[in-house]
Amino acid sequence: MKNEHVQQIDAAIAAVKSLSTVENFYFVACGGSMASLATGDYFINRELETPSRVYTSNEFIHMNPRGLGKNSVVILRSHSGTTPETVEAAKFAREKGAVTIAISMEETSPLCEAAEYTVHYNYKDGSDAIDGEVGVYFSLIFGIISALSSDEKYQRVLSQLSNLENLFESNKKQTLDRAYKFGMDYKREKIIYTMGSGAYYHQAYSFTSCLLMEMLWIHSNAIHSGEYFHGPFEITDYDVPFLIIKGEGPIRPLDQRAIDFAAKFSEKVEVLDVAELDYTGVDEDLREYFGPAIVGVVLRQYADGLAEHTGHPLSVRRYMWKMEY
Rank of each mutant, 00 (worst) to 15 (best):
E152K: 15
E270Q: 10
D273M: 11
E85M: 01
I144A: 07
Q301I: 07
A93T: 06
A102G: 13
Q155G: 14
A29P: 01
F229C: 01
K173F: 09
V22Q: 09
V119R: 06
Q256N: 09
A179K: 02
A258G: 05
Y55D: 03
V28I: 08
L76A: 08
Y325T: 05
R257G: 02
D283H: 13
F182H: 03
G305N: 00
D131K: 01
G183P: 02
Y205N: 09
I9K: 03
R287K: 15
V28C: 02
Y302A: 01
L161P: 05
A115Q: 12
L19H: 07
N171E: 11
L37E: 15
M184C: 06
K153H: 08
S104E: 10
G81T: 13
M34C: 14
G281S: 06
G198D: 10
L254I: 04
E116N: 06
Y123S: 13
N71A: 01
H219N: 14
T208N: 15
R66F: 09
S315K: 07
S162T: 14
D131L: 01
F290M: 07
L76T: 05
Y325S: 12
R66T: 10
P51W: 06
G31F: 11
I145Y: 08
D10T: 07
E152C: 04
E23I: 02
D273S: 13
Y123P: 00
Y325H: 15
A15L: 08
V22A: 08
A14S: 14
C210K: 01
L212I: 07
T86P: 03
E85K: 01
K173Q: 15
S170W: 02
D285W: 03
I245P: 10
C210E: 13
S72Q: 02
V157N: 03
H62P: 00
I259K: 11
A93E: 08
T118H: 05
P253R: 13
E106Y: 11
N71V: 04
A199G: 11
G305E: 00
D278A: 04
R53H: 07
L158D: 10
A303V: 05
S149L: 09
L140K: 08
D260F: 00
K173T: 14
T118G: 05
V22K: 07
G69D: 11
K187D: 08
Y42I: 04
E227V: 05
E284N: 12
F182L: 04
F142I: 13
D237H: 06
F92D: 05
I144T: 02
R156M: 07
T100S: 02
F60K: 00
A38N: 13
G97N: 07
